[in-house]
Design a protein around this nucleic acid. Structure first.
Lengths: 329, 329
DNA sequence: TTGTATGCGTTATCAA
DNA sequence: TTGATAACGCATACAA
């Protein structure tokens, strides 16, 4: 591939002059500038960003670590990141961790080698090795989806407790008395425990005794929603079910329909996430909509500010919206 | 951030010795090696990949250009790419084009500046500017999803004609006589025109006159499937519908159910893609399953071979599978 | 076995 | 206005 010296030779000037033309530096003789531009055009020359990066100690590249890019939430998130990053002249190196902590740390190490200017990280846990890495690194970090409360780590979060609380309150406001929940794994603080906590809070506020709370733990899959619904119905006749994500909600609906329970006439169902399926399914699914695309945009803005040494809030909360559809009318 | 000289000083050796230790080069005094390793461990030093890249003219980075990462097909594709690339010590720079040709070319230019070792490109069209870029570039290209038949461009494709032909044949094999198709935009050669061609071929083989062919053009959205189904039913009472993707198939089903036409009893429906929704929907949707994850893996293998100067087939076809579900039983 | 010097491609500094 | 030179961090050829 051609370098700046080749261009200089072809244009009959020095490399410095070529560099000046490329970077729109003043003080270049107009005739020479034209000659250089012509050669640039003809050859399709592109400066080597490695050399530039080495010089400036800056790569205009962000590292992005997500558990699974084929999960619609994360692909929306990454879409927001990529588009916003590009607007700001940055590119992204995408890495997936499969939610394995060791792989996450491995990602950090690779990204450090690649000298990315910042890292956007979506994970579920913060081990000592994570912390060690963040401490030893001068690279700005933005964490999405979990409030790790670690030093001044910048984080962008969903207010899971409040969103879940609002969703349950919405059901109570329809005059329903008996609401069950299908939770995620409770060790997952954000999407598991916090969403359960919101349900707990709303229930207590509506006069339910904590020991009478009806809930089953699922693992965010459709089949776990199906099974949880089965267990709930065996124990008690509820009027509504709130699930910690849409997949489990759909699994629950499937079980209900399979057993001739009408949704929403007999039992109302509300999910969480606003997965594209929620809108399409029959009955369409009421849910809590989180704007992951926007989360991506905010993450990029935060990290770029951070890179440029601009102070930025280190805890940001994402808006959400309760969307009412057929499953809870 | 520390560099190799800093490490050398801390360990009391020369930078060259540190380099030798890092690269497991022979001929290093064991005691010094240990000393260096210790410093490396303590400092968490990582060599600057920009400097290395500059030296070797190699970045171990692949560029990936897809229309839209939030489309499940492409996110599966990218997932396969990322995982397989990592297995081979490569990382990926992900870029999205929104299917806009100018933005695609822009992506190529940026990736050239970043000196990626290869580019994996999923697009729908090959303009002169694309060609110019590919011609002027020494970077290996792998194209996914379209058979552009340009020079010796390596491409990985779905055999859309055959897959579509097989899907329609499958319907005929059930004794059905009147099959309509909802096509994609016919200017899109792969998912539009080719899938139509397969339908045409299978229909003619089953004694249909080409001018009696029933089909409506959609744009791959649910609503266009809904509208197309409406138009088809106005014109003719068909026994089955084949749609060029699952979304349009679901739109068609929605229209049928809304109008008290039973699926599959009255009309059978088959889609294309095996979108996750297909399995979940009621009735679950028969479809043509394409393994996009595998396409990603194949793309990476092809491009890495190419990078290493290993000869590789320049036309590869992806397997597919007709999946029978409730909508066509 | 070890260290010094060189070059990868670019830009900033300085001298002309 | 221009060009020669040094520097970014690394690995290697070569000298010791």
């Amino acid at each position: 591939m051609l370098n700046i010296k080749d261009i200089a030779k072809l244009a009959g000037v020095s490399p410095a002059t070529v560099s000046r033309v490329i970077n729109n530096s003043a003080n270049v003789n107009e005739e020479k500038r034209q000659r250089v531009l012509e050669v640039l055009e003809q050859t399709g020359y592109k400066p080597n960003s490695l050399a530039r990066g080495l010089l400036y100690n800056k790569t205009f590249t962000l590292g992005v670590v997500v558990p699974d890019i084929s999960n619609i939430n994360f692909s929306e998130f990454v879409k927001g990141i990529e588009i916003e990053a590009r607007q700001n002249n940055y590119n992204i190196i995408l890495m997936t961790s499969g939610n394995e902590p060791e792989r996450e740390v491995e990602c950090f190490e690779i990204l450090k080698e690649k000298r990315v200017d910042g890292i956007i990280f979506a994970g579920t846990i913060l081990t000592d090795r994570h912390k060690l890495h963040i401490d030893n690194s001068t690279i700005p970090f933005v964490v999405f989806g979990q409030d790790f409360e670690y030093k001044s780590l910048i984080s962008i979060n969903i207010d899971n407790i409040k969103a879940s609380y609002d969703a349950v309150k919405y059901l109570y406001s329809k005059g329903i008395k008996k609401i069950a929940m299908i939770t995620g794994p409770l060790w997952d603080k954000a999407a598991g425990y916090d969403r359960y906590t919101g349900f707990l809070k709303a229930s207590i506020e509506n006069g339910i005794n904590q020991r009478d709370l009806i809930y089953k733990e699922g693992d965010f899959t459709i089949s776990s929603g199906y099974e949880a619904m089965k267990k709930i119905l065996k124990e008690e006749r509820v009027e509504a079910v709130f699930a910690a994500n849409d997949f489990m909600a759909l699994g629950a609906i499937k079980y209900l329909l399979d057993n001739d329970v009408k949704v929403p006439q007999d039992i109302k169902v509300v999910g969480f996430d606003d997965n594209p399926i929620a809108k399409i399914y029959t009955p369409s699914l009421s849910t809590v909509k989180i704007d992951f695309y926007r989360a991506g945009v905010l993450s990029v803005n935060a990290i770029i500010s951070c890179i440029n040494g601009i102070e930025v809030e280190n805890k940001m909360l994402l808006e959400y919206e309760i969307i009412e559809r057929q499953s809870s009318i």
